[in-house]
């Protein structure tokens, strides 16, 4: 686990809101190691999603450097980033964001269309990814015919289909409850352990965060220094009222 896969050095991000400049990230530096399952937590508006966007190559830092798997992506053009994302990053969304007119299989196959790959190989990889998430029996179903949990499984299969080293997940259980949430978290954990994927997950949720190896807490655009000795202590610091929850 000594291999650094994500490195952010002094990452700043500013947005303009009319004439006003809003600094969302204020010099964030972090490292994530290959095979880690990291939860990024913090209150709303703290800069979690902005940081995730920088790491996933969806946005560029105003200043600073973002290095993923040895490549500095902070100065890439939009089209270079798009090409890079196809194979380097798997993205899992809170609201699944499957294409409603495509079947589960077609949704998973979608990123492979951008690669120079034969139809048979595309099929093999898409079926393999759907098999990994336990949806081999739902290939021809459209998103509207699937439950929320199943849709998120399809979303995860789509994130994995190009075999990226890093999977970023933005509140992947935010739209699920109870057993479905646990199932998705189990699945992410299995993938991380079984396939040695690095997972960076933004979450508000104590249960989800408790599955991570490490917590990164962000507040007001800055990563907080952790003084906890163990993950349990870190969780207790991050979610002081967690025990009060049903």
């Amino acid at each position: 686990m000594s291999d650094v896969i994500v490195q952010v050095d002094e990452g700043f991000k500013e947005y303009s809101r009319g004439a006003e400049r809003v600094e969302v990230l204020k010099g964030v530096s972090l490292k994530i190691y290959r095979g880690e399952f990291v939860a990024l937590i913090g209150p709303s508006g703290s800069g979690k999603t902005t940081l995730l966007n920088l790491i996933a190559g969806l946005d560029q830092p105003t200043r600073g450097r973002v290095v993923i798997n040895g490549r500095d992506i902070s100065r890439m053009s939009e089209s270079e980033l798009a090409r890079w994302r196809t194979t380097a990053i798997g993205f899992v969304f809170q609201f699944y964001h499957l294409i409603p007119v495509l079947t589960a299989y077609e949704n998973v196959e979608l990123p492979l269309l951008l690669l120079n790959m034969s139809a048979s190989r595309r099929r093999k990889q898409a079926l393999n990814a759907l098999g990994l998430v336990g949806l081999s029996h739902r290939l021809t179903h459209r998103p509207g015919q699937l439950s929320g949990g199943e849709q998120q499984r399809v979303g995860i299969a789509r994130a994995l289909v190009t075999d990226p080293a890093l999977v970023v997940a933005d509140e992947p259980t935010g739209d699920l409850d109870g057993r479905k949430k646990e199932e998705i978290l189990d699945l992410l954990q299995q993938l991380q352990e079984g396939l040695n994927k690095t997972i960076l997950m933004v979450t508000h949720d104590h249960t989800a965060a408790s599955r991570a190896h490490r917590l990164l807490r962000i507040s007001d655009g800055m990563l907080l220094e952790e003084h906890a000795e163990t993950r349990e202590e870190a969780l207790a610091l991050a979610f002081p009222d967690a025990k009060l929850r049903p």
Partner: peptide, 13 residues
């Protein structure tokens, strides 16, 4: 939103 998702997946404009 769908187009944004496609862009996330690596589709070029």
């Amino acid at each position: 939103v769908e187009m944004a998702v496609l862009k996330v997946l690596g589709f070029q404009p």
